[in-house]
């Protein structure tokens, strides 16, 4: 059974821009998939369909067998609790410290403080930031902030981790560290990873399944290690 399926999806925005056209992909549980393409190729639109920030104009998106396009707006939070999302701009709350930022999803779910603490510590340990729990986001480097974001995304033990250009704002060295963290999550916890990126070095080095989008159309779907990016993507 496929964990994620996108079937005949079209996304046409109100201003007439077609972001995706007749798009089909399916992703198995435990896969690590890169989504690559130029700027404005439709990567972000695809990501947004997956976490139901946007609805396709036409077509279906299944996650864990559930058609998320049919999900009502007020039920979307149930989906979001089952997937983790990592953003290029981290989206951390600056007035909360690291611990509070990671605990944020659990707190808003009304979970007991005594249950929250071990979960947060575990997640921070996983990304190697346990010693910085009292720091505030503006006291952290970009790489550290991204790790906090990953810890927050993983706090509910999601089956899928959606990463929208997580290394977009980071230097190559830090990017490598972040990729190591994400790869470990995939290997150790079996979390399915879907990652949109621009970074050809990462794609070449990681040797994972690669889906190429060009002008909103599926331009290529390369199995593990078959893709080699020569030109810039």
């Amino acid at each position: 059974m496929e964990l994620i399926e996108v079937k005949n999806c079209y996304k046409i925005y109100k201003n007439g821009v077609t972001a995706l056209a007749d798009f089909n992909i399916s992703i198995k549980k435990g896969d690590f998939v890169f989504i690559i393409g130029h700027t404005a190729s439709g990567k972000s639109s695809l990501m947004k369909l997956l976490y139901r920030e946007e609805k396709p104009t036409k077509g279906k998106v299944y996650i864990g067998g559930i058609d998320v396009t049919k999900l009502r707006n007020r039920k979307v939070y149930k989906l979001r609790r089952k997937i983790g999302i990592v953003f290029q701009d981290f989206k951390l709350l600056n007035k909360l410290n690291v611990f509070e930022n990671v605990a944020f999803p659990l707190e808003s779910m009304g979970i007991k403080k005594t249950e929250i603490k071990p979960k947060v510590l575990k997640a921070l340990e996983m990304v190697g930031l346990k010693e910085k729990i009292h720091s505030f986001p503006n006291q952290l480097s970009g790489g550290e902030q991204q790790r906090v974001c990953i810890a927050r995304a993983m706090i509910n033990n999601p089956k899928v981790l959606i990463c929208d250009e997580p290394t977009g704002n980071l230097d190559p060295e830090t990017s490598k560290e972040i990729m190591k963290v994400i790869d470990n999550i995939n290997k150790e916890m079996g979390t399915t990873i879907i990652m949109a990126t621009h970074d050809k070095d990462i794609v070449n080095r990681m040797k994972k399944r690669v889906i190429v989008i060009e002008h909103g159309v599926l331009a290529g779907d390369y199995l593990k290690g078959k893709y080699k990016a020569n030109e810039s993507i």
Binding site: Y77, L79, R80, R81, I85, K91, L93, S108, A153
Partner: peptide
């Protein structure tokens, strides 16, 4: 706005 967006993305229910 920022906080609300983050709340939505991490799965906070509308009521909350």
């Amino acid at each position: 706005k920022n906080e609300i967006e983050i709340m939505r993305l991490v799965g906070t229910s509308n009521v909350v």
